[in-house]
C-alpha cells in the first residue's frame, strides 16, 4: 500500500515554518495539522555539539514502516518525518513530524505514535560532546515503556 508519507533523512537544516506550511497546503479536506519539532538540548550549558549517527538504508525503511503503521491506525491524509544526522549545535532543530487528519484527535495521536516509535525503533544514535569529552546518549527505559501504551 502506498501511503502519503513523506520521509526525509538529511544532514541539512530544515525550515520548520516552510515545511509546516507546505505540508498543510498539500492537504485537502483535512481539519487538523499537528507538528512536533525536536531541538538539541543543552540542559546545563556545557554541550559543545551533538553528533547524530544513523544506518543509511535501514533508517529510511524503518521510518517508512512506522509511518505506514500510523496510517493504518488513524485516518490520516498525510504525514511527514524529517530527521537530521551529522553534527548539530545546541538549539538546532534535529527532527520534525507532521500529521494531517480530518479530526485533531487522530492528528495528535498519530504524531505521538510517530515520535514514540522513531525514538526507539529508527536506527539513530546521539553522541554529546562537552568540554573535549564525548559520550553516547543512553536509551531511556521510559522510551521503551512508552511503546507498550500503543500495543
Amino acid at each position: 500500500m502506498l501511503t502519503a508519507a513523506d520521509i526525509r533523512v538529511q544532514e541539512a537544516p530544515f525550515d520548520l515554518g516552510a515545511e509546516a506550511s507546505t505540508f498543510a497546503a498539500s492537504q485537502t479536506g483535512m481539519g487538523a495539522v499537528v507538528t512536533f519539532t525536536g531541538i538539541v538540548r543543552d540542559l546545563d550549558g556545557t554541550l559543545d555539539y551533538m553528533q547524530v549517527e544513523h544506518y543509511p538504508g535501514m533508517t529510511e525503511k524503518a521510518l517508512r514502516s512506522i509511518a505506514e503503521d500510523a496510517h493504518k491506525r488513524w485516518d490520516l491524509g498525510g504525514s511527514l518525518i524529517i530527521h537530521r544526522h551529522g553534527r548539530l549545535a545546541p538549539d538546532d532543530m534535529i527532527m520534525m513530524v507532521a500529521t494531517a487528519s480530518r479530526h485533531r484527535k487522530d492528528a495528535f495521536e498519530a504524531a505521538m505514535y510517530l515520535m514514540d516509535y522513531l525514538k526507539s525503533r529508527a536506527p539513530f544514535w546521539k553522541k554529546e560532546a562537552t568540554g573535549g569529552d564525548a559520550s553516547w546518549v543512553d536509551a531511556r527505559d521510559e522510551d521503551e515503556e512508552a511503546l507498550k501504551d500503543w500495543s
Binding site: M115, L118, K119, S120, W136, D138
Partner: peptide, 10 residues
Amino acid sequence: VAFFPPMTGG
C-alpha cells in the same frame, strides 16, 4: 547483519 546499541532517535 548490523550490531548497535539501543537506538536514541528523536
